[in-house]
Nucleic acid binder design. Structure first.
Lengths: 140, 140
DNA sequence: CCAGGGTCTGTAGCAGGTACAGGCTCAAGA
DNA sequence: TCTTGAGCCTGTACCTGCTACAGACCCTGG
């Protein structure tokens, strides 16, 4: 039996969300801010996606998982879309992102050191004297 | 010569900002969200601060530097204000914060590993093949 | 007397989403 | 056939942690 209305299954927003694990609303958000393209619409104004949209969204999600900001994602996509992107250009973006990731790690490690050494001095008792409070209150 | 209008120097918002290094507007923000108390007002409706406000704001800023969220700061302050706070209670908050800091460090380290090992494969040349793009595009 | 700095208020903006109201559309079940 | 529920559409508000700005005041020095 032939389905005259849609001979191939089209993807709607919910399908794209399920296929990628992306939040439904986030897809529209990505479209609004221009990292996802505006897809064609069905006669009833429903967004219609295909495999390339799936790939695109997965790309974005992977980049986000690697901590790239949406601005950086936009840059990466622009390079890819440009077609003539070079390994050197992408490497540049990735390296500067890597630097900021390392900076964040250093910040957090510093925090971890201070916090853990302070907490280590706690008696944990039902007494009001507390090294953590002292550290925060310190007049130094 | 006696200053009949203000025998002691009162602190206004700008003074508090300068003394603590806090942004001027942030002070008002902290008041709005209830981590800084509403200070008394002068006859002309200017906020009037004193030493305790300076100490309070420094406390908040130190806690923020240690990565406590404003919600956590609120909890810490509630304990301190309660007067009967115990070292055990504070230790509990600090430890759970410490756990989330460590989780963030682990996340970032994972990101760092993936990113650096990927970038290491880049030739950096003017060629379109790029391991970073491959990793993001991967169909896996 | 006026310029400039400070202060006051409310409000908008940033990232990066998330959520919800109010209205359509569509397919399946009774 | 009618109804009910799920899905989609739009715009908009909300979240954290600020930051900034407009338009009114107020105060001091020159």
């Amino acid at each position: 039996m032939i389905n005259h209305h849609r001979s191939v299954k089209v993807l709607r927003r919910g399908d794209l969300a399920r296929l990628t694990g992306c939040n439904l609303e986030t897809i529209r958000y990505y479209e609004n801010i221009g990292v996802m393209p505006e897809p064609p619409r069905s006669s009833k104004n429903y967004r219609v996606y295909d495999d390339r949209h799936v790939a695109r969204l997965r790309f974005i999600m992977r980049a986000r998982e690697l901590g790239f900001t949406l601005d950086e994602v936009r840059d990466l996509l622009a390079l890819v879309d440009g077609g003539a992107q070079t390994c050197g250009e992408v490497q540049g973006l990735a390296n500067s992102h890597l630097a900021s990731v390392r900076a964040k790690i250093d910040d957090l490690k510093r925090i971890e050191r201070v916090l853990s050494s302070t907490v280590a001095q706690c008696t944990g008792d039902d007494v009001p004297e507390c090294p953590v409070i002292d550290a925060l209150t310190e007049v130094t």
